[in-house]
């Protein structure tokens, strides 16, 4: 990465005029998206991904979409997941098929997923959450593929997200509140 910074400063002027002022992995603050499970940190992911689209072509849940130019030129045609539209079911097929290991292959076991996947972490808005308003809900807990590990419930099914949450987004997808009371805060590494 040292050479990267060197070359970037070297070519900063040229790059600025052609590719915009962005350097690697710039994100629009208004855009909140997840990378597929097992993805490298944002800068490495963008430089490793060759935009072949195989991750999206194998995803059985059709949750992987591809950027146009809305997240800048460097993100063009890279895969992303909007959890409110469709969460990741952690089948881990995308890492298996990725030819560059931009999405690392992670075996489909709870231990490996807990150790290797860090798409983000769920965050509960207690003002919106029904369970915290005295109306027993618990939908997010039931949607979670890592029940009692990533998310626990207390009185009235009030969700408590733990440090173990991998950020697959199934809770955000399933939340019956509008807007959703539980959201994934992405972790781009």
């Amino acid at each position: 990465m040292q050479r990267r910074t060197f070359i970037q400063s070297l070519a900063a002027a040229a790059a600025a005029s052609v590719a915009g002022p962005g350097t690697a992995a710039r994100r629009r603050p208004s855009l909140r998206y997840l990378r597929p499970p097992g993805a490298l940190n944002e800068a490495d992911f963008v430089s490793r991904c060759i935009r072949c689209g195989q991750c999206g072509e194998i995803c059985p849940n059709r949750c992987i979409s591809y950027f146009g130019l809305e997240n800048g030129l460097t993100s063009l045609d890279t895969p992303y997941i909007i959890p409110r539209e469709k969460g990741c079911i952690l089948c881990m097929k995308c890492g298996e098929v990725c030819p560059t290991d931009a999405i690392r292959p992670i075996p489909r076991t709870a231990e490996d997923i807990l150790a290797g996947v860090r798409m983000g972490r769920a965050h509960v808005d207690k003002r919106l959450c029904l369970s915290y308003q005295g109306k027993t809900c618990g939908v997010c807990y039931r949607a979670c593929p890592l029940q009692d590990v990533a998310i626990r419930v207390g009185l009235l099914e009030q969700p408590h997200v733990t440090e173990q949450c991998v950020g697959c987004g199934l809770c955000e997808r399933s939340c019956i509140q509008m807007p959703q009371a539980i959201r994934i805060i992405p972790d781009y590494g």
Binding site: A11, A15, A25, L73, L76
Partner: peptide
């Protein structure tokens, strides 16, 4: 440009 931006722009 790919090297400068750190993204596979040739794609």
């Amino acid at each position: 440009l790919s090297a400068a931006t750190g993204a596979v722009l040739v794609a």
